[in-house]
C-alpha cells in the first residue's frame, strides 16, 4: 500500500494507465509544460511526450472533441477541464456527440473518454470555480458520472473510467485534493473499482445517509457527533452517480427505514431528487419517515465567506436534519 493524497491517487491512476496502454492520451489546458493547474499531470510531458500529453488552446469544445474523434477510431482520450465548471463550453460534445455516438452508430462505435476536472466549493472559488453540476450529465443517456471521496476510490475509479468503453464525466473535488490522504494499492496489483457500485463508508442502524464527493466527509463527521447522542448513521458513498447503485441503497434502507440524502449541488433537480423518487416508487413501505435532503440552496456559489457558507451545506445542517429524522 502507498499513502497518498487524493490528488496523487488520481495522478498515479492516470500515469499507470498511460504506461499500461499506449492508446491512452491526455489533453487539456496547461497540462504539459506546467503539469496542470493543480499539478495532476506533473511529470507527464517528460515521460509521455507532447503527442500523448497535449497542451491545448483554451478550447474546451475542441479538447473534448479531440478525445471523441480519437475514441471513434480506437484511442482513449482523457480531457482535463481546468475547472469542471468550464465543461459548459463542451456541453454539446459530451451530451450530443459523445453521449449519442454508440447509439447512432448502431452499437459499433463506443466512445471511451474521460472528461475530468476539479469541482466543488468551500475554497472561495466563487461562481465559476466551485460548481457541482453533475446533475446535467446524470440526466444524459449514454454518459456515466463518477465522483470519488477517498484516495483508494479515486485511484480505482479513475482506472475503471479510463478502461470503460463509455464517456465518463469524472468529478474531482478540489477541497479533497490535498486535504485527504489514504492508502492505495501498489501499481502491480492492477486495482480497479467497478463503476456503478456504491460503498458503505460507515455502518449504522438508524439513518441511511446517501451522499458522494466532499459531502461523504461531512456526513462522516456528522455521524461521529451524533454517535454521542445515540443516533447511528450509515453512510453510503455512491462513488458512481450514473449508473446508480440502488441495490446498496435498498439494502441499507431495509435496515434503517430512514433516509437522508446529502449533496453539495443545488437541491432542485439534483441527484437527490431522483434517488428520492426511486425510493418512493419501489421501497415506500420500508420507510418510517419522509425522505430528507440536505443540499446547496438554489443559488450560485458566491465568493464572500459568509455568503458561500450560507449557500453550501454544512456538517451542522446534516446533524440537524439527522436529529429531526431520528425523532420523526
Amino acid at each position: 500500500m502507498r499513502e497518498v493524497t487524493f490528488l496523487e491517487a488520481i495522478r498515479l491512476a492516470i500515469w499507470e494507465e498511460m504506461e499500461r496502454d499506449p492508446n491512452v492520451f491526455i489533453i487539456g489546458e496547461d497540462i504539459g509544460r506546467m503539469g496542470g493547474a493543480f499539478g495532476v499531470t506533473e511529470g507527464f510531458l517528460a515521460r509521455f511526450g507532447p503527442d500523448r500529453v497535449v497542451d491545448a488552446p483554451i478550447s474546451e469544445t475542441a479538447i473534448v472533441a479531440v478525445c471523441v474523434g480519437a475514441a471513434a477510431v480506437g484511442k482513449r482520450g482523457i480531457a482535463e477541464m481546468q475547472f469542471i465548471d468550464f465543461i459548459s463550453y463542451a456541453f454539446d460534445q459530451v451530451v450530443n456527440v459523445a453521449g449519442t455516438y454508440l447509439y447512432r452508430s448502431g452499437g459499433k462505435v463506443p466512445i471511451p473518454i474521460v472528461v475530468r476536472g476539479p469541482s466543488g466549493g468551500y475554497v472561495g472559488g466563487s461562481l465559476y470555480h466551485s460548481q457541482q453540476f453533475e446533475a446535467w450529465f446524470f440526466h444524459t443517456p449514454g454518459v456515466k458520472v463518477v465522483q470519488p471521496a477517498f484516495p483508494d476510490d479515486a485511484y480505482g475509479l479513475m482506472k475503471a473510467s479510463i478502461r470503460d468503453n463509455n464517456p465518463v464525466v469524472f468529478y474531482e473535488h478540489k477541497y479533497l485534493y490535498r486535504r485527504i490522504k489514504g492508502p492505495i494499492p501498489e501499481a502491480h496489483e492492477d486495482y480497479i473499482v467497478k463503476l456503478g457500485e456504491a460503498r458503505i463508508r460507515r455502518y449504522g442502524d438508524d439513518i441511511t445517509v446517501i451522499t458522494y464527493g466532499a459531502m461523504v466527509h461531512f456526513a462522516l463527521e456528522a455521524a461521529q457527533r451524533l454517535e454521542r447522542e445515540g443516533i447511528s448513521l450509515e453512510v453510503i458513498d455512491l462513488r458512481t452517480l450514473k449508473p446508480l447503485d440502488m441495490d446498496t441503497i435498498a439494502e441499507s434502507l431495509q435496515k434503517t427505514s430512514r433516509v437522508l440524502i446529502v449533496h453539495e449541488a443545488p437541491k432542485t433537480g439534483g441527484i437527490g431528487a431522483e434517488i428520492s423518487a426511486r425510493i418512493s416508487e419501489h421501497y415506500f413501505e420500508w420507510l418510517d419517515a419522509p425522505i430528507m435532503r440536505v443540499a446547496a440552496k438554489d443559488a450560485f456559489v458566491p465568493f464572500a465567506e459568509p455568503l458561500e457558507k450560507f449557500v453550501l451545506p454544512s456538517v451542522d445542517e446534516i446533524v440537524f436534519a439527522a436529529r429531526e429524522l431520528a425523532a420523526y
Binding site: 492520451f25 497535449v54 469544445t61 474523434g69 471513434a72 477510431v73 456527440v97 462505435v109
Partner: peptide, 24 residues
C-alpha cells in the same frame, strides 16, 4: 466515414480527434 450530428460545426472539432489518433 466519420459520423456527423445536426450541429454541423461540432464535427469539425471531432475531426481533429480522428486526425490526432492518426498522429499517435
Amino acid at each position: 466515414i466519420i459520423h456527423s450530428t445536426s450541429m454541423l460545426g461540432s464535427t469539425i472539432a471531432v475531426a481533429c480527434g480522428v486526425l490526432w489518433a492518426q498522429r499517435l
